[in-house]
Computed example of a mutant assay.
Amino acid sequence: MKAFEILEQLVAFPSVVGQANGAIVEWVRAYVARFNLEVTILQGPEGDRSNLFATIGPKNVPGYVLSGHMDVVPANEPEWSSDPFELRAQADHLYGRGTSDMKGFLAAALAALPELASRQLSQPIHFAFSYDEEAGCRGVPHLIKRLPELCAKPEGAIIGEPSNMRAIRAHKGKAAARVEIRGRSGHSSRPDQGLNAIHAMAEVLADAAAGAGRLALGPFDPAFDPPYSSLQVGTIKGGQAVNIIPDLCSAEFEARAIAGVCPSALLTPIREKAESLRSRGLQVNWELMSEYPALSLAKDAPLAQLLKDLTGQELLAAVSYGTEAGLYQEAGIDAIICGPGDISRAHRPDEFILVDELIACQSMIETLGARLSR
């Protein structure tokens, strides 16, 4: 099957983040199994979604991981020009949810599989397809934990997030948390008899805004844009009516950290401020929703040189969005980002990828196979 034909199949699965993904996993498993390759389905703790791992070549020697996620963000925007889960071709544009982020990479890898399987590889190429990346890389840690029983420690991991087929050496880390404050309800005419949860949360929000301002003062890493760590309040919910003292308020906070800074540590002052409210009789619950580390691959790393050779392009130093790459690096595996499509097309209506981008990615993977052949 050609890459765009595989992409058509993959896009048709509405594998939205946080939902069961058995259908797309089974399709990929069956496709890979046609080439007499061993496929391992790694069920996550949620019970209804899984990672998938397959190896081409000898699994007992170090090789390379091709890493991608099978989940996509929802496609509820009314601006879509066609069904987001039905691939639409228009000239060289292929429209559909996940085409760039990142089923295009999966399709290119699977389209390269016949060529890879026909070779006698001296080093293996692994497919590592994960779930719930869009929820803060929740699926891939379970896969990485199982790698020692699946294969020899890989020499490197190529994370196929959309990068216009230009390899990227670094990205920021991220942590997200939810704070819930519970007070006491009552009639708004007697504020002395209640505990206003929104008022209490306002103090936490003010501390968060001040913290964001301080982060803009440094430390700096000029490779990133912006060149500093950041912090924001993403959502806030609370209250029932204007004449009722709100007894519940929740807010979600996000931190993005430059390399060398722990993302969750940036949220610690917010947690401390929120938990200090307990002294006033308020109930406070803190939930760390997700966290992944930054990526920082040295410019002279062998994996960096390999991707320069494979793509024929100079590497980009860094991007501000995050990927699963930092988790591979944290596990002691060099990682780099390189995939078809453009991140600016992701998470928006009429997401698309170009046919030439799919072909270029497939070619890169097949060239990697040629380099690893006996």
Rank of each mutant, 00 (worst) to 15 (best):
Y131V: 04
D132L: 09
A135W: 06
G136Y: 13
C137P: 01
C137H: 12
R138M: 10
G139L: 10
G139H: 09
P141G: 02
P141Y: 10
H142L: 11
H142K: 11
L143N: 02
I144L: 08
I144R: 10
K145E: 15
R146Y: 02
L147Y: 01
L147P: 00
P148W: 14
P148I: 15
E149Q: 15
E149T: 14
L150H: 07
A152S: 11
A152K: 07
K153D: 00
P154R: 13
E155W: 12
I158E: 01
I158K: 08
I158M: 08
I158R: 05
I158V: 14
E161Q: 12
E161M: 13
S163Q: 08
M165R: 13
M165Q: 13
R169Y: 10
A175K: 05
A175G: 01
A175V: 05
A176T: 14
A176R: 03
A177W: 04
E180Q: 14
E180C: 13
R182W: 02
R182C: 06
G183W: 00
R184Q: 09
G186A: 06
S188V: 06
R190W: 09
R190L: 14
P191E: 04
P191N: 08
D192A: 07
D192S: 13
Q193T: 10
A197T: 00
A197P: 00
H199Q: 08
H199A: 05
A202F: 04
A202S: 15
E203C: 04
V204E: 04
L205C: 11
A206M: 12
A208H: 04
A210H: 13
G213N: 14
G213D: 14
R214T: 06
L215I: 12
G218R: 08
D221H: 11
F224K: 02
F224D: 01
S230V: 10
Q232Y: 03
Q232F: 03
G234Y: 03
T235W: 08
T235A: 07
I236Q: 01
K237H: 13
G238A: 03
G238P: 03
G239L: 07
G239Q: 04
A241I: 06
